[in-house]
Design a protein around this nucleic acid. Structure first.
Length: 346
DNA sequence: AAGCCGGGGTG
DNA sequence: CACCCAGGCTT
């Protein structure tokens, strides 16, 4: 039996309450101004699996450096990665650059304005396609992200709702004008009120139509998924120095930290002087990395698969895109007196 | 369907 | 520690 939450008699008040709540409580993010397709696409790419507050400074810096689609299409991979450095999931940055090149060079600069077309761009999946269609082009689409899924699961009291069920249930909330506001409002609601833990049902404009709340346990929905236990990897970062130049390699495409530079890593301890271990937790494994200062004159390992490798002076180290862990390693090397200049982020 | 892909905030 | 975040891609 379908839940009564959004049956015809209550759908209009619920929709009005949701949109009124959003008009009053929406946070002010830079991507909510000047919603061009380019700005929306960049924002949605950065926001994938990343908290909105984290994205703000990255988005503003990106827009200053690459203000439009053509600027991005012309930019090199290191420029893009440097602007992305610290956001993680670096495939997003490569895909965003390829998407810009595709629109500029294969679509004559005409941005796709429908979900199905958008979906063909690299890095654009079901959520982002719907979000760009709704936010930038005013399409009546509901983009389902983690927030919308949680809000919908609680409204339905369904521990694992299918996307089609969520769309069918939430579609009545779409207003005739500015339908993109509905997705925005549901996302905002999920982020600030219908939170994963300790939801604030007392502040929720949809509380009166929420089955999860009626059953008394809104936080039980959606049900938590199974997680594989994290594994620990021990590795060694080889610091090869030539004067104050440091040997860095570029990581190959497709894998971890794709396209980023860093000291070469290996599983066996190399000869040399050990520096303090750096611990870092990734989403699916834990890394214990020990930097080792290689014996002076020892030949550095060649770059992987014919990729790039270079002797980098401190200024270059500061400019190339490095992962957070490798920044820590370089900082250790600096503190040990091996490098002269502080590598800093832009 | 499940694994891979970063980093950080929060309880 | 745990979970999760304006997900997408690959197998």
């Amino acid at each position: 039996m379908p839940p009564p939450s959004l049956a015809p008699p209550s759908v209009r008040p619920a929709r009005d309450a949701l949109l009124r709540w959003f008009a009053r409580h929406a946070r002010d993010f830079p991507w909510r101004h000047d919603r061009t397709p380019y700005r929306v696409l960049v924002a949605e790419a950065m926001l994938q699996q990343t908290r909105a507050e984290t994205v703000v400074p990255y988005f503003e810096r990106w827009m200053r450096a690459l203000p439009d689609l053509h600027a991005l299409a012309r930019a090199g991979p290191d420029t893009v990665l440097r602007l992305w450095e610290g956001l993680g999931y670096y495939r997003r940055a490569h895909a965003l650059r390829r998407a810009a090149q595709e629109v500029v060079h294969e679509r004559g600069g005409r941005f796709p304005d429908q979900e199905a077309e958008l979906r063909t761009l690299p890095g654009v999946g079901p959520y982002t396609a719907a979000a760009v269609a709704a936010f930038a082009f005013g399409r009546a689409a509901i983009a389902i992200d983690g927030n919308v899924r949680r809000v919908g699961a609680r409204l339905l009291a369904d521990p694992a709702p299918r996307d089609a069920d969520l769309r069918a249930h939430l579609a009545p909330l779409l207003p005739a004008r500015a339908p993109g506001r509905t997705t925005e409002a549901l996302i905002e609601l999920g982020a600030t009120v219908c939170r994963p833990t300790s939801p604030r049902c007392d502040l929720c404009p949809l509380a009166s139509v929420c089955s999860g709340r009626m059953y008394g346990r809104p936080e039980a929905f959606p049900a938590a998924g199974r997680r594989s236990p994290p594994r620990t990897r021990r590795r060694y970062a080889a610091l090869h120095l030539n004067g104050d130049r440091l040997w860095l390699i570029r990581r190959p495409e497709g894998g971890l930290l794709a396209g980023l530079w860093g000291p070469p890593q290996q599983e066996e301890p190399p000869p040399g002087r050990f520096l303090p271990e750096v611990a870092h937790r990734y989403s699916h494994f834990a890394l214990r990395l020990t930097p080792v200062v290689a014996t002076p004159g020892a030949p550095p390992p060649p770059p992987p698969d014919g990729g790039d490798g270079a002797w980098c002076d401190p200024a270059t180290v500061a400019e190339l895109p490095l992962s957070t862990v490798d920044r820590k390693v370089v900082a250790l090397a600096r503190d040990a007196g091996l490098l002269t200049v502080l590598p800093s982020r832009p």
